[in-house]
Structures are given as C-alpha cells and as structure tokens.
C-alpha cells in the first residue's frame, strides 16, 4: 500500500530550490505525481502531490526537507490523502468559467469577488492578479457546477459589483479561452 501526501513548501526564492526539495523527497523514494509552483514578491511557493512507500510519515517528510541547506528556513505543510483519492483523478470541472476583472486598484477586490463566489457556492480553482500602473487585473477560473444560483444571476451579481467598484468584470466559459488560445481543437 502506498502513501499519498500533499506537500506545500514556501521559501525565499533562489536557483535550485525545486531540485533540493524534490531531491529530499527522492531520498524517501517519493514519486512526484503533480507539482505546481509560483514566485510572488521574491518568495517561491510550491505544492506537490507525492506518492511514498508505505510507512513514510509526515514527520519523515518534514525532517528530510528541513535538512536542505537554504538561506532561509522552509515553511512546510504536509497532508496525507485518503486511500480512496488519487492525484490523477481530479478532472477539469465541466462547468468551468473564467472571470476577468480590470480596473483601478483599490482595497478589497479579491475579497469581494471571492465572497460572491463563496456565497453562491462557486468554487475558485485558480486565481491570478497583476498590477500595472495602478491598473488592476484579476483572472479567476471557477467551477459553477455546484452553484446555488443560475449563471445569469451570477453574472448579474458580478456586474453590479463591477458597477459599484468601477471595475469591468466579464464571465465566459473556459472552453472559449481554450478555443481561442490553444492550437489543438478540443
């Protein structure tokens, strides 16, 4: 029986962090099934899905990664997945939409948008923001499969927020963005 762990690591960014962390996991015979990383404000954060031989514990993983020599201590979090869940069985939600927001920067935008999502049981799958010359841009991928309102109602709620907050908000099906940006025709 294998053990499946989800591990998150945050550290000051420098060349070689991913090699060091995955090297530490390899020493425990860990097999990286999935990895996602990003750098923000000079800090790197990564989240990994790793399969280990049975018997490997959360403490073993903490210890192995903590031994990596780095300028700053890693912040590590480890969760064990139930046996019934698999890394590669998280399909793209059927009703996945992209919410895009553009406008002047102001406080509380992410909170407001995510609150509307949360209130209507819309699950945020991915979210990215950028700020250029006081122009704020946010792109949110979300699933409305379990939403407690209709798409029309959701669009209306975002429109109202956009009007009040002087932001332009649009919500389009994810497939539209794939179709217009990917070579492969799905």
């Amino acid at each position: 029986m294998k053990t499946k762990m989800v591990i998150s690591v945050m550290s000051k960014d420098r060349p070689g962090i991913i090699a060091d962390v995955t090297g530490a996991l390899l020493q425990l015979e860990g097999d990286v099934a999935d990895l996602n990383q990003t750098v923000l404000c000079g800090y790197l954060t990564m989240i990994l899905g790793v399969t280990f031989p049975s018997g490997i514990t959360r403490e073993d993983i903490f210890a192995s990664i903590s031994h990596v020599k780095s300028g700053e201590k890693f912040e590590i979090s480890v969760k064990e997945l139930p046996e019934t869940e698999n890394f590669n069985e998280i399909p793209q939600p059927e009703e996945s939409y992209i919410l895009s927001l553009q406008g002047p920067n102001c406080k509380g935008i992410v909170h407001a948008v995510s609150s509307i999502c949360g209130r209507n049981n819309v699950n945020i799958i991915d979210l990215g923001t950028s700020l250029q010359q006081d122009r704020y841009t946010m792109a949110v991928q979300c699933s409305i499969k379990e939403a407690t309102c209709t798409l029309e109602e959701l669009r209306k709620e975002f429109e109202e927020y956009g009007r009040d907050a002087n932001q332009t908000i649009m919500m389009q099906h994810y497939d539209l963005f794939r179709a217009t940006n990917e070579v492969t025709l799905h």
């Binding site: 992209i98 963005f177 940006n181």
Partner: peptide, 12 residues
C-alpha cells in the same frame, strides 16, 4: 490555467 495575457486578449 491560461496566462492572464491570453485571457485578456480574448476578453478584449
């Protein structure tokens, strides 16, 4: 996830 510039070009 698609890059935000790709998203914005479609949004535009």
């Amino acid at each position: 996830m698609l890059r935000s510039d790709q998203i914005l070009s479609t949004v535009e």
